[in-house]
Each structure stands twice: as structure tokens, then as C-alpha cells.
Write a protein that binds this DNA or RNA. Structure first.
Lengths: 119, 119
DNA sequence: CCTCTCTTGACAACGGCATTGTCAGGGTTC
DNA sequence: GAACCCTGACAATGCCGTTGTCAAGAGAGG
């Protein structure tokens, strides 16, 4: 758990919104919406500027995965996050292994997404 | 809640689709969609007619709660059901107590529903 | 100082999803 | 035979998610 370099502390707020947005390939607008919905809480500088940590980035990538690949809407993401928090465990990892097709067969990589696309 | 009469076995398929639909106040069409999405699996008579059990009804009421009150879409419902199955526990009950604002633990009883309504 | 980027708030547009509704042709039940 | 169920399809309506933009104001850096 001990970070070899304290500079790479994943909780350290480093990315300004434009950088964070380009990292996760979304519009800055989208990140602000996620924050309005309470799905991410980036730190702020003393002068009120958002700073995203590595963990914030990961959280946003989770939201993207749930919404884009699994078709879940933001309300569903919120429920899943709350659930994870309440259970105190990384519940979502099960979903990820499921979504990445850990069973070995690569064809089953996105059950929901494919179904949605096939409509 | 132990059934005094075996006739009231909650797993027993009894309701035809029109009856089930009126019980949960949705269009029969909606119930068929839920089945197409794999969210409910009512039994069938030998002649292919859907029969919903008490448990099926409850499951549908869950879907209605998640979609109408919490704003979750069907993809999110699917994920939650899968999660519950994988964890082997009634995970969703936590959401219900949270949604009904029972026990009055904290003021965060309706963050999602209220927020959605306020939009 | 000047310019770029950030802040919030609002509005618009586009595509997609959820639900209801209906119509068709055919089978089941009473 | 009338009322209900089946599947499959198509449409209408309303809401949601995302992107995009414009405004006016404040911070950051050359």
C-alpha cells in the first residue's frame, strides 16, 4: 500500500478540469454534471478551481464504463456507488470481471451493450 | 409469514398477464418488455400462457420502484439484480430502507428521488 | 497588462431509452 | 363464439445523457 513516491499519491489533487476531461475523453461539461449529481467530488484550490486526483479519474472511468458499456444511467450509477459504500467492499469489481469477459470467451465481453446495440 | 395454506405458496404461478398488469398498475406490454430484458421470468402453462407468481409480482414491484422512484433504467436494474444474485444476499433491501426513509437514521433518505424531482 | 483558463448558470440540440398504445394473424379457454 | 393470450412490429410521447455554446466574472502566468 505504501506509495514508493509520495508524489504519486492517488488521492493527490493534480488535474485541472480540462486535463481531466481529456484524460477520460469527455467534455468538461460532463465532468461538472457528474459533480452536480454527486458522483465525483474533486478537490478545490483555495481559489475554487477543481483539481482531480488519480482516484477521481478512476471513478470517472467507472462511470463511463457503467454508462457507455453497460447502459446504466446516472441514477443507476449513484445507486451502485451508494451500495458499494454501504457494503464496504469493492462490489463493482464483480461487475468489471463480468464485463471484461473473464470467463475466457472473448465473445461475451459486453452482454448489455450488445443487446442494446442490437435493438 | 409461513404459508398456512399451500395454496398461498408465493412461488406458485397464478396470475395471467392481464391480472398481473393490473396488480402492479402497468400495461401488459411493459411486463412483456421486462421479460424480454430478462428481468422477470414468469412460468408458462403447457399452452405457453404466462403465469406470474406472488414472487414475480414482487419482483416487478421492485423494478417499478427502482425505475419510477429512483430513476434507474432497465440496464441498471439488471445490474442490481445480477449483483444481488452474485452476492447471495438481499442487497436491495438496503436500498429500500433508504428509499422509504424508514428508521429515520439520517436526513439523506431521499437524495436521488428529490433531486430528480427538483429538476 | 493581456491572454488563457477557470468558475457558475442557462439554453439548445441530438440521439437514445421507457412506457404506453395499437394492429396483425393465430392459438386457448370457457 | 367471445374473450383472452401469444408473438412481432411500428409509432408517439416524454424524459435522460452528452455535447456545445454563450454570458459575466475571477484567477494564473507570461
Amino acid at each position: 500500500m505504501a506509495a514508493p513516491h509520495p508524489d504519486r499519491d492517488p488521492t493527490r489533487p493534480v488535474y485541472v478540469i480540462s486535463v481531466a476531461a481529456s484524460i477520460v475523453s469527455v467534455h468538461p461539461r460532463t465532468l461538472r454534471i457528474y459533480e452536480d449529481e454527486g458522483l465525483v467530488c474533486p478537490a478545490r484550490t483555495r481559489t475554487n478551481i477543481r483539481l482531480y486526483s488519480e482516484n477521481d479519474i478512476r471513478r470517472v472511468l467507472w462511470i463511463r464504463h457503467l454508462t457507455q458499456n453497460l447502459g446504466v444511467n446516472l441514477a443507476g450509477v449513484r445507486i451502485l456507488f451508494e451500495l458499494e459504500e454501504r457494503l464496504g467492499t469493492r462490489v463493482l469489481e464483480r461487475l468489471y470481471s463480468e464485463a471484461t469477459g473473464s470467463a475466457g470467451a472473448d465473445a461475451a465481453s459486453e452482454p448489455a451493450a450488445v443487446k442494446r446495440a442490437a435493438r
